[in-house]
């Protein structure tokens, strides 16, 4: 394992310190329990958006704390959901009278820990469960996983909360975005969890893990290494079967890198995916390309599509000022 670190078990703390210094204008990082919150809390009641999950997906979620998006985020250990006391403290620190909306990626650990926190929180609260990974069947025994679509939910609901929508409306909006969002990913390599010190799995040069989540785990299947065209096709076709967009539909197309894929290749993936949709008469109305929901140093990417309507477009375009996503201000 070759990584820039001091000790595997101090990496998270030190990295978060760096994050807090670098973005001291917009966030504050608390350490016990650990969470990141907006520096400026609205002075009128506003639904507080709280998310969190294992570390290793940076910039998700702490990179999305700020005006127009999350109010707080709880980073767990690498690929390990945070603990209820973190979520509780985070929620209590940003709740200001309009309740708390938890945005949770659908993984056993995240779901259960957020459940415990929600049971303990006195303030009114609700949860949106993100489950956008269509590499799994819709009726999977635990539901689908939450992957790169999560940031789209956080951005759109974040804008709505900023505009004053109430808790029920924010939850309903989040669920609408979830219904209209589908993602699928692939990996060409494993990643290395710092505390483990060696790759989570091995994979042959002529193999690709198809249908991976974001925890450096194997995919649903191994498929033969092939051209980007062939591989990306498999992602877009699965998404297409799930969302079945009609000609004329406007979409947000998000190509996400898993951490170690050069941007040049991500734009190639974008090109392939964009043309797939354009050929079907779908309009690429908004786009986002980059490393947003990563698996440490994994080589790979995911494709995410959100079906847009005027409401979602306006909310996507609304001002956002976070460490990793910023526009309109």
């Amino acid at each position: 394992m070759k990584k820039l670190l001091n000790q595997p078990d101090t990496l998270l703390t030190e990295s978060l310190q760096g994050f807090a210094i670098a973005h001291a204008d917009i966030v504050i990082a608390e350490t016990s329990p650990r969470f990141v919150r907006r520096k400026h809390i609205a002075n009128h009641p506003k639904v507080a958006l709280v998310s969190g999950g294992g570390a290793g997906h940076e910039p998700l979620h702490a990179g999305f704390v700020g005006q127009g998006m999350l109010d707080a985020a709880c980073p767990g250990q690498v690929f390990t959901s945070p603990t209820p006391d973190q979520m509780l403290a985070a929620a209590e620190s940003v709740e200001n009278g309009a309740g708390v909306l938890f945005i949770v990626k659908n993984y056993a650990g995240d779901v259960m820990n957020f459940e415990i926190a929600a049971e303990m929180l006195e303030a009114e609260n609700a949860t949106v469960l993100v489950a956008d990974d269509v590499s799994l069947p819709a009726d999977h025994s635990t539901g689908r996983r939450g992957v790169a679509g999560t940031l789209i939910v956080e951005k759109i609901v974040g804008a709505a909360a900023e505009q004053g929508r109430d808790l029920a409306a924010c939850k309903a909006l989040g669920e609408k975005v979830c219904r209209q969002t589908a993602s699928m990913g692939l990996a060409l390599s494993s990643c290395t969890v710092p505390e483990v010190g060696k790759p989570t799995f091995t994979i042959a040069d002529n193999e690709v893990e198809m249908g991976v989540g974001i925890h450096g785990e194997r995919g649903r299947d191994i498929v033969p290494m092939a051209s980007a065209e062939t591989l990306v096709q498999q992602l877009t076709e699965t998404i297409d079967r799930d969302l079945s967009p009609q000609a004329g539909q406007k979409i947000l197309l998000h190509i996400n890198g898993l951490g170690a894929t050069p941007l040049m290749e991500l734009y190639l993936v974008f090109d392939i995916a964009a043309k797939y949709w354009q050929q079907k008469g779908i309009e690429i109305h908004r786009s986002l390309v980059g490393n947003y929901t990563t698996s440490l140093d994994m080589i790979g990417c995911s494709v995410t599509v959100t079906l847009l309507d005027e409401e979602l477009i306006a909310l996507w375009d609304a001002p956002v000022h976070t460490a990793a996503l910023r526009w309109g201000c």
Partner: peptide
């Protein structure tokens, strides 16, 4: 356990 472990096992063993 609940406040130090995290993950699925943390919530389960904690509970």
């Amino acid at each position: 356990l609940m406040s130090t472990m995290g993950g699925a096992s943390g919530s389960l063993l904690g509970s």
